[in-house]
Design a protein around this nucleic acid. Structure first.
Lengths: 209, 209
DNA sequence: TGACAATGAATGAACGTTCATTCATTGTCG
DNA sequence: CGACAATGAATGAACGTTCATTCATTGTCA
């Protein structure tokens, strides 16, 4: 993930982080042992220490990677033709990323960790502020939102949007096995589309509803 | 908390859970050692095992207590004269409980734990469903919400409301020291009032706004 | 051969849990 | 009432285990 690398030499850092994500999502940061990560990655314990100073560095690197992923989603969202589509991209990014599915449990754990690890907190806060600024700008620019005194100022709307997104992520971890990721995504979209239309549509025309 | 008890004999279970809440909020479930809890409670380690089978039982009991607290908040919310007031009670309960302040970090940790501990997951799911059903009923009954096709069916509105509540809780753990609990509460209320008015008010009259 | 990647046994600290022991309180009997 | 027996709440040192971290050794390729 970080440095460009030839094919023959595997990018160890990335390989380790991939394995760590699987473990973290399954067991959480602190119940995951270094042995768990090494086993998942198919390497030895000691090798992890060649690429990361210690376990905390692995956690921080994961937060850092998450930050980069969110930034990329934000970039993609900015390209979308309509505000609604932009928001939907942002909204569903966390359950159905193409490459690395960002597991809800991992993100919830990330916030829990942030609440007591200042280094992680700074990273997460940074993600959030960047993303929030992006969305605020997106809203300001969008023609759909021009007559929006209803939902408040763009920044207030953005705050609301992020609260809903994080909230659904939190509820996501409770959804039992009986629901697939796709079903959950659909359910989330349904509720949030209603919110958009409520925030942005002046009166009757409730799309999707 | 559990059995009635005279004043001279302290309710050990409750005392231990109080101490555990402080520790859990500060360090998280799994970084909190039994020694931490005993030190916080001012008792010996061994005594904890007289009242709880093991550490997991302490965590479960905490989740259970949280469930009871939420139920009480729900009861209080149902007494409120208007829907808005009901919702505000529910909404701000998690940052300013009178007796035991339910720390955001603890709740986030609770959800993280729920994602991998079925026993805790069942408890949290149960809370959520009870509360959600209560709010759905509250909305159905409220005159303010009668003409509410805007926000969707009562249950959809309830789902949205809970997503926002959980989301703000999650964002809460990032709020740096520069904000007091009261300030955060005000900020939350501001955003959510806007949501209510957006969901329930037909057109112009935006109270609070 | 030399340089570096990789291994996994070894280390020691920290943790959850147990249990032999202490001792204030309560109950009993003369 | 006073002496003694019984109780069980409370203690904290000790145990076995797990875990992050280290490092001597081995493997690999130029």
């Amino acid at each position: 993930m970080s440095q460009p690398q030839t094919d023959s030499v595997p990018d160890r850092r990335c390989q380790i982080l991939d394995a760590a994500l699987v473990c973290f999502a399954k067991r959480g940061f602190h119940q995951t042992s270094m042995h768990d990560i090494s086993a998942e990655a198919g390497i030895s314990v000691g090798l992890i220490y060649r690429y990361f100073e210690n376990k905390e560095a692995v956690i921080s690197a994961m937060a850092d990677r998450h930050k980069k992923e969110i930034s990329e989603v934000l970039q993609r969202a900015k390209q979308a033709p309509t505000l609604l589509e932009s928001l939907e991209i942002l909204f569903t990014a966390h359950c159905c990323e193409e490459q690395t599915p960002v597991v809800s449990a991992f993100v919830v754990d990330l916030y829990a960790e942030a609440s007591r690890n200042p280094r992680v907190a700074d990273l997460v806060r940074d993600v959030l502020q960047t993303a929030m600024a992006g969305v605020t700008e997106l809203i300001s620019r969008a023609p759909e939102a021009q007559n929006t005194t209803r939902g408040g100022s763009p920044i207030e709307v953005a705050e609301l949007i992020f609260a809903v997104a994080r909230g659904m992520l939190m509820l996501d971890v409770l959804r039992p096995q009986e629901m697939t990721a796709t079903e959950r995504r659909e359910r989330q979209l349904q509720v949030t589309r209603r919110l958009w239309s409520c925030l942005f549509k002046p009166e009757a025309e409730l799309a999707y509803a």
